[in-house]
Design a protein around this nucleic acid. Structure first.
Length: 210
DNA sequence: GAATTGATGCGCT
DNA sequence: GCGCATCAATTCA
């Protein structure tokens, strides 16, 4: 079945139990799975983990009006405005430690390409969803999605194909605090990453089923 | 290709 | 005021 004929999110839904995982484990687990919003989306190829005890995390200094969703139920979305211009999407997780989330940094566009191009105003497939702000714009995400349940429409999360592919691990991007933590994950060989992984970061200790 | 800069919301000191 | 979990246009090369 091709990407064109497949309905958005065809395949097994991600079990809600994955959101009980800690952020680092979930960030790795999500690589290769499929995310769509109102039928528009694709394969998750890049994520970052953020924890409560993490100086780079919005939840580090406790709950505020902005980060309220991070302290809400797991399996819900945390959508925030970045640099006053962009929106960024996180998955809230880890019920044992409220304030944990996984930032979705990049997708391989597969479904609703025309709608993405329309929203982004740029057709370059390499830059359609390569970056958290670009991804949110392509999927039409904004404040109205903050706090919504990821298991309900317009969201749909499904397992990826069962093809073993190495997972890249590296330092997170665009942060100044706790920047040394290797909590950025990527799909090896993907041409849709927001930025390439450094040579030293290409060390993956095995393969994941994606 | 790499470096620089402007746009801009909002939580924090 | 300052500092961002960013991006695109512009300026170089």
């Amino acid at each position: 079945m091709t990407a064109e004929t497949a309905a958005a999110g065809d395949g097994d839904r991600l079990p809600n139990t994955v959101f009980a995982l800690d952020a680092v484990t979930l960030a790795r687990r999500l690589i290769g799975s499929t995310l769509t919003v109102d039928g528009v989306g694709g394969r998750i190829v890049e994520t970052e983990a953020y924890r409560r005890d993490d100086a780079a995390s919005h939840s580090f200094r406790g709950e505020t009006l902005r980060n309220r969703a991070m302290f809400g139920p797991v399996g819900h979305a945390y959508v925030y405005r970045s640099y006053g211009i962009h929106w960024c999407l996180n998955f809230v997780c880890d019920g044992a430690e409220p304030g944990s989330a996984v930032l979705i940094r990049a997708l391989e566009p597969l479904f609703g390409l025309d709608r993405m191009v329309e929203r982004r105003g740029l057709a370059d497939p390499r830059r359609l969803c390569a970056g958290p702000g670009r991804l949110a714009q392509a999927l039409g995400l904004d404040r109205s999605h903050d706090g919504l349940d990821l298991s309900q429409p317009p969201f749909r999360l499904t397992e990826g194909d069962e093809v073993p592919v190495p997972i890249l691990v590296g330092a997170r991007i665009g942060i100044s605090k706790a920047a040394e933590q290797p909590w950025r994950f990527g799909l090896a060989g993907s041409r849709h990453l927001s930025r390439p992984f450094a040579k030293g970061e290409i060390a993956s200790s095995g393969t994941e089923t994606v």
